[in-house]
């Protein structure tokens, strides 16, 4: 997965190859990325020969992303780290000695000069594939647009036979609400679309490619608050995704457990992407360019009883996010 040399602005090399173990590495990294200059930069990590597991690399990635920065690529001589990086969709490349030398001369801040091992450099000679950060516009307006929740206790139909009973059209409802002087509320729907406009990054078009062709990241762990997974492909998680966690995939997201955080499927515009979970409690559901929030009226217990699970699946239909529940056969 080597990539071509080119130009990248806003880049940094962080040399962590001197670290003996992960604890050292993380504390070193921590002290470097505390620096305010790191914000919104692409970070090139030099990891040396240290073996890092997928979960460890994932948390390092999360750490960097928590500072508003992103990983441009990693430079490692360990096979395990390389495998972990590949499985997380992180680009692997080499930092040349020249780059470091050049950067050292150009730009070393006082703080890092005394750090010793951590080189903290401005890097300008690379092309990096970075998914632009998607940010929710602040002050979103809640509009009642059609999102249906199809659930019929009595029915024994298969999921494919469930047909949305009635759909709201945003314009219909808006004019109706205006006439009646009502606030748009929808007691019954589980998710309400956010009026975020076109949130797809520039240059990315809506598409409906086949997610089955994409690679799948398989994670056997519970995601806790603050942990994020970002993958170029499908994501499959065995475990819960706690509130405060974030899952972003260019393909489908499947959680074998309770999905309580934020899930964004089809993050690069694939409108056929789906989000599935044994229990779909996501704070926000995002599919391609559509963002929806959990309805405030939805009553989520602190702890879900496992025997109450009915697998759910969210997908886009006619410009709305529709949630299907898999019904139990009686």
């Amino acid at each position: 997965m080597l990539m071509e040399k080119g130009l990248v602005e806003n880049g940094f090399i962080i040399d962590l190859s001197a670290a003996q173990n992960t604890t050292q590495l993380v504390s070193e990294l921590n002290s470097i990325i505390e620096h305010p200059d790191v914000r919104r930069k692409n970070v090139c990590l030099k990891l040396g020969s240290l073996d890092l597991k997928q979960s460890q690399l994932l948390s390092i990635k999360a750490l960097i992303e928590s500072k508003d920065a992103s990983i441009a690529f990693v430079d490692t001589s360990s096979e395990q780290t390389e495998a972990s990086a590949v499985s997380l969709g992180i680009v692997i490349s080499k930092v040349s000695e020249q780059d470091i030398q050049q950067n050292l001369n150009e730009n070393v801040s006082e703080e890092t000069a005394t750090e010793g091992t951590g080189e903290y450099n401005n890097e300008e000679n690379r092309t990096v594939e970075i998914t632009p950060e998607i940010e929710l516009p602040t002050g979103t307006i809640e509009t009642a647009e059609g999102i249906e929740d199809i659930y019929d206790e009595m029915s024994t139909q298969e999921i494919s036979e469930v047909i949305p009973s009635e759909t709201f059209n945003s314009s219909d409802f808006g004019s109706f609400a205006a006439q009646e002087g009502l606030l748009p509320t929808e007691e019954n729907s589980k998710y309400i679309l956010l009026d975020t406009g076109n949130v797809l990054p520039e240059g990315i078009e809506e598409n409906s490619s086949d997610n089955a062709q994409l690679p799948t990241l398989y994670l056997n762990q519970t995601l806790r608050s603050g942990q994020t997974v970002n993958y170029n492909g499908n994501i499959f998680i065995i475990g819960d995704a706690h509130p405060g966690s974030e899952i972003i995939a260019t393909g489908d997201i499947t959680v074998w457990g309770i999905l309580g955080g934020i899930a964004h499927a089809g993050s690069e515009g694939n409108i056929t992407s789906k989000v599935r979970a044994l229990k779909l409690n996501a704070i926000q559901l995002r599919i391609a360019g559509l963002y929806a929030r959990r309805n405030d009226t939805m009553n989520v217990p602190y702890v879900q009883k496992t025997n109450e699970f009915t697998p759910e699946e969210a997908q886009i239909e006619d410009g709305k996010i529709v949630i299907y529940k898999k019904l139990r056969r009686n």
């Binding site: 173990n21 992960t22 604890t23 993380v26 979960s55 460890q56 948390s59 995601l223 806790r224 608050s225 603050g226 942990q227 706690h242 509130p243 405060g244």
Partner: peptide
């Protein structure tokens, strides 16, 4: 509890 969850996640990544 939300903060504790975050902390547990961070502690899980500490090998020691």
């Amino acid at each position: 509890i939300r903060d504790a969850d975050r902390i547990i996640g961070l502690l899980n990544t500490k090998e020691d």
